[in-house]
């Protein structure tokens, strides 16, 4: 197998979708929040908490979907905290977000350590299994490459398309976008910028929680600290790369995952000639590169990071 042959293996493309899934959830969540004008650096911690609470729910006998729901609710609660501090109180979105990340992840570790005794091998659950779709999964190549995923992956793709539609074509999406561009104009239109911002942050945080839960309920079957590995920060970079548009976020997440899946296989080809850490750096370096290229070109929501206070300009 040489460097180009890798692209012809269906396994690569199946891995791309799998690796992209938590990034799709995370990017959509951060995007929704930022579109309403709130930067959400709580994402890394919320993904960690979602991974933990989703796993713990299933470990204690819950259904896998209940686990995913628990992660969404847990994410939403931290999102509500972030929203209350940054929207009505107008606190620094940077520092509050980092505080949420530190708080959510340390609470996740605390609850995990409290509920699961220390042991050599982490306990496991039965994770989501591949969902076979009639006809499509039986297609040659495509069946294996695209239609052999677990249910949350399909859900992530559908959510990306759904969010793209809602933001671009519905009154709700228009309301969210106006609030992110000019909250005073939104208020003049009879909208409530504070309520809309809180709603967008909470909904976005629920998506982040689900992205974390995908790691423990589908990609792996156990929880361990630091497993999110900066996926939240990569998602924040992907939002810029996607110019705050959900359909581009889907593309961006897939592109990143392609590089990640490719480097994993490339490692096996080049063997020990190149230190494996260089390959592991690629997603982070790519995120930085994406920011460099897109930062000036992307259309930033005009009121991003600007707190809204009634009657103040």
């Amino acid at each position: 197998m040489d460097m180009l042959h890798i692209f012809l293996s269906a396994g690569l493309w199946a891995a791309v979708l799998r690796i992209a899934t938590p990034l799709i959830f995370g990017t959509l969540g951060a995007l929704l929040s930022e579109r309403a004008g709130v930067l959400h650096l709580g994402i890394e911690g919320i993904m960690t908490f979602g991974a933990m609470i989703g796993w713990l729910t299933v470990y204690h006998g819950g259904d896998l979907w209940i686990g995913l729901l628990a992660a969404a609710i847990g994410g939403g609660i931290f999102g509500l905290l972030h929203a209350l501090l940054t929207v009505p109180l107008g606190l620094s979105q940077h520092v509050t977000g980092l505080g949420i990340t530190l708080f959510a992840s340390s609470l996740a570790y605390f609850i995990f350590r409290l509920s699961v005794p220390v042991s050599g091998t982490p306990p496991t659950i039965v994770a989501f299994q591949v969902l076979h779709i009639p006809v499509l999964s039986a297609l040659p190549f495509l069946g294996e490459a695209v239609f052999s995923q677990t249910a949350p992956t399909y859900l992530a793709v559908l959510l990306a398309l759904g969010l793209a539609y809602v933001l671009a074509r519905t009154p709700l999406g228009l309301a969210i976008r106006i609030v992110g561009e000019n909250p005073h104009a939104a208020e003049a239109q009879g909208l409530d910028p504070i309520a809309i911002r809180i709603g967008a942050v909470v909904a976005g945080s629920a998506l982040m929680g689900m992205g974390g839960a995908f790691l423990t309920l589908s990609a792996f079957n156990s929880f361990f600290p630091t497993m999110v590995q900066g996926r939240g920060w990569v998602s924040i970079a992907l939002v810029v790369f996607a110019s705050w548009r959900p359909e581009r976020a889907l593309f961006g997440a897939l592109l990143f995952a392609l590089f990640d899946a490719y480097q994993l296989r490339l490692q096996q080809v080049v063997g020990k000639a190149v230190p494996y850490q260089l390959f592991l750096m690629i997603p982070y370096l790519m995120s930085i590169a994406a920011l460099l290229v897109m930062a000036r070109r992307a259309r930033v929501p005009q009121a991003l990071m600007q707190p809204f206070r009634r009657g103040e300009r």
């Binding site: 900066g230 920060w233 970079a237 260089l278 592991l280 982070y284 930085i288 920011l291």
Partner: peptide, 23 residues
């Protein structure tokens, strides 16, 4: 130079550096 928010880049560099240390 490029108008890139330093919060995200400094955060991402932390991961790069830790891998560099490991290497």
């Amino acid at each position: 130079r490029f108008g890139v928010d330093e919060v995200v880049t400094t955060l991402l560099l932390n991961f790069v550096i830790l891998l560099f240390v490991s290497m």
